[in-house]
Design a protein around this nucleic acid. Structure first.
Lengths: 163, 163
DNA sequence: ATCAAAAGTGAAAGTCATTATCATTTGCAA
DNA sequence: TTGCAAATGATAATGACTTTCACTTTTGAT
């Protein structure tokens, strides 16, 4: 990650969704842009604390919601876990997550997409969204099965693959 | 629904998962067996109240969890909504839900299942589970779009279709 | 630049679904 | 029948948000 962004770009994004440009929004947005993918609201809040300890978590949650409402971000809810946020990409993709180390991979599959549309049509539904989540044990965790499960913060890795 | 069940059958199910047979478990289990599909823990709790007001919701939640752990029930989590429970069926299926009236339909699709396994394999994952949820507007709600959204308890209908 | 209206903010309280605690009760194997 | 692990229910706690509200900031119009 660690892309560099200038505040002009950030301001543009904020203005385009029709809300006011504030210091807190710039900081939050920059953090999301330059930080890890698949972050939780808590993670953003904590990651921002050292640079701007005055920003409340309500503001983080609120802005994250706003960004989702305007399709700048996409909310990813895996299981009952806290929501994670990622940049809304042109290309749709789904997620594959390890139940042990919680790492997340992304994948795309046109065939499945097409089949979903077909199914919705058969039920007379106007499809607005879908969620496809695969859960399993990643290759690394299959090997380390004997090692006790980690207790620390789960590592969030991310990759995209075209299948 | 309204299948009739005798307590011998219920007791058998409870004993088979290796826990004690209690009055509350019999009542909860009968309620799930004879009641609606896709019920929430709250719904079970409330539905039971008039016949056994002494059963606490902790007991309902606990037993529902136990039933899930032993594959008697399956937990279905759509979006951030409360978990719903359904009988674990031999045949796997996925869900299609209306974002407006919250009705749930079930469907099966072998092709998608096969593709999922293939994707997991490509990532070196040992697939343990998957979630495929389609969200949209059902045919009924497409027609009633002009009528203000209902405020009362959403109707839960359920169907299975083989595609 | 100034200024008021509207929008945004932070702290704290509130929700909602679910889980944990713990003193008491109950199922059931011996 | 009895001993005791398992189960229960009341209540408190938790986690992830969301709402409220008094105060602050942005911004478009002047």
């Amino acid at each position: 990650m660690n892309k560099s962004v200038n505040s002009t770009q950030l301001k543009k994004i904020i203005r385009e969704i029709g809300v006011k440009v504030t210091r807190q929004r710039l900081i939050i947005l920059e953090n999301i842009l330059t930080g890890d993918e698949h972050v939780t609201a808590q993670a953003v809040y904590e990651s921002i604390r050292h640079i701007a300890p005055d920003i409340g978590f309500a503001t983080v949650y609120r802005f994250l919601r706003t960004l989702c409402d305007h399709k700048v971000l996409t909310e990813v809810r895996m299981r009952g876990l806290p929501a994670r946020y990622e940049w809304a990409q042109k290309k749709h993709h789904d997620h594959l997550s390890c139940v042990r180390c919680k790492c997340i991979y992304e994948f795309e599959n046109e065939q499945i997409e097409a089949l979903q549309i077909e199914i919705a049509k058969k039920f007379g539904f106007k499809l607005t969204e879908h969620i496809l989540e695969l859960y399993g044990v990643c290759s690394k965790c299959q090997i380390e099965q004997n090692i006790p499960k980690e207790v620390s913060t789960p590592l969030q890795t991310s990759h995209v693959a075209q299948l």
